[in-house]
Simulated assay, not measured.
Amino acid sequence: MPLGFIDNGRPPSPFPPEWASSWGQDQYGVWAALQIEGVEQVLRWVWPGIFLMGSPDDESERNDDEILHEVVISHGFWLADTACTQELWGKVMGDNLSGFMGDDQLPVDSVSWSDCQDFLRTVTDKFNGPKLQLPTESQWEYGCRAGTQKPFSFGDNITIAQVNYNGHFPYKDGAKVEMRWRSVAVKELPCNQWGLYQMHGNVMEWCADWYGEYPEGAKVDPEGSDSGEFRILRGGGWVGNGRFARSASRYRARPDDRSGNYGFRFSLV
Rank of each mutant, 00 (worst) to 15 (best):
D65T: 03
D65P: 02
E66R: 01
E66S: 03
E66V: 02
H69A: 11
E70R: 05
E70I: 02
V72F: 05
I73N: 04
I73A: 08
S74Q: 09
H75I: 00
H75E: 10
G76V: 05
G76W: 00
F77A: 14
L79A: 14
A80L: 10
T82F: 10
C84N: 05
Q86E: 09
Q86K: 07
E87Q: 15
V92Q: 04
M93I: 03
D95W: 06
D95F: 09
L97E: 13
S98M: 10
G99H: 11
F100Q: 12
F100K: 06
M101Q: 13
G102Y: 08
D104Y: 02
D104Q: 09
L106D: 07
P107A: 15
D109F: 13
S110W: 11
V111E: 12
V111D: 10
S112R: 04
W113S: 11
W113I: 02
W113Q: 11
S114W: 00
S114M: 12
S114N: 12
D115A: 11
D115C: 13
D118E: 15
D118K: 14
D118P: 08
F119W: 03
L120A: 14
R121D: 13
T122E: 09
T124E: 15
T124P: 00
D125H: 04
K126F: 02
K126D: 15
F127W: 15
F127T: 09
G129P: 12
K131C: 08
K131N: 13
K131V: 13
K131W: 03
L132N: 07
L132E: 12
Q133A: 11
L134N: 11
P135R: 05
S138W: 10
W140Y: 14
E141S: 01
E141M: 00
Y142M: 04
G143T: 08
R145N: 01
R145L: 05
R145I: 02
A146R: 08
F152M: 05
S153M: 02
F154T: 05
D156G: 12
I158G: 05
I158V: 15
I158Q: 02
A161W: 08
Q162S: 14
V163Q: 03
N164D: 12
G167W: 00
F169H: 02
Y171W: 07
Y171H: 08
Y171K: 02
K172H: 14
K172M: 04
K176Q: 13
K176V: 15
V177W: 01
E178C: 05
E178W: 00
E178V: 01
M179S: 06
